[in-house]
Nucleic acid binder design. Sequence first.
DNA 1: AAGACGAAAGTGGTTGA
DNA 2: TCAACAACTTTCGTCTT
Length: 306
Amino acid sequence: MSEKSPNSSTPCPPDKIIFDAERGEYICTETGEVIEERIIDQGPEWRAFTPEEKEKRSRVGGPLNQTIHDRGLSTLIDWKDKDAMGRTLDPKKRLEVLRWRKWQIRARIQSSIDRNLAQAMNELERIGNLLGLPKAVKDEAALIYRKAVEKGLVRGRSIESVVAASIYAACRRMKIARTLDEISQFTKANRKEVARCYRLLLRELTLDVPVSDPKDYVMRIGSLLGLSGTTMRTAAEILDKAKGLGLTAGKDPAGLAAAAIYIASLINEERRTQKEIAQVAGVTEVTVRNRYKELIQELKIQIPNQ
DNA sequence: AAGACGAAAGTGGTTGA
DNA sequence: TCAACAACTTTCGTCTT
């Protein structure tokens, strides 16, 4: 699916390629092109300053960032000063229980953010992969989510829905066209909830997100339908003109893109049915038809028959 | 038989009082 | 908080290829 390969045909002088260890990508300093991503860092994920430390931390078991999740089975120490049989505890025992409680609460607070993040990253990775998102988008989403956790926005909301909202926000910012429906499809949370979280993120984190452009959808819809570059370019031109005439305001960008694709497919004799296009665009045929009708009318586009 | 078209009623979200 | 409203969906009947 990905066209990116380490030895792609694009000329990029070897001395211009640098390795970005943070992101795990090889990047060309000339063009900014990502040569290869998902490089596995073979080194340890910790630093040791003394030989003893190194000895102590040698790797056994999984990596440090594995998800640690208590599955809701963590022990709770009751606030009542009774033992399991319901008897009142003697004063000495009481003090001891008090210490346990304090210790436990502290440990939980300290690890709660980490645990939350670990679970969220798991979830993010899962959804991101199902949607086929590039690493850069997942990173952006992770960053947004982390900020949300730090601001305490996740409290009272499900991790899943906030993760989904972060992904949506990241997609919007990176101009990767994905609808809310597509993203919430892989989540237990419904679209409404994800949308609400998304708006919350925008407001609380003051993310600036560019207005979604129907042209962003053209590429994806086009390639999903196996259309030629010419057709996609035609569709983009149609959308540009439509924008100039102010036809795009308040309309579903996916629907507009679908209609533009439909028209372009007719012009370039790569005909696809309205149903096919509507399906991959995530709108109905009716919407495609309505946009189509508006576009050819307002732009005075002639469809060559046959 | 499948696709295109359009009308009518229903739905969820935004806006403005 | 509620009602009006625009955009979109669902459903269905008709016409065209």
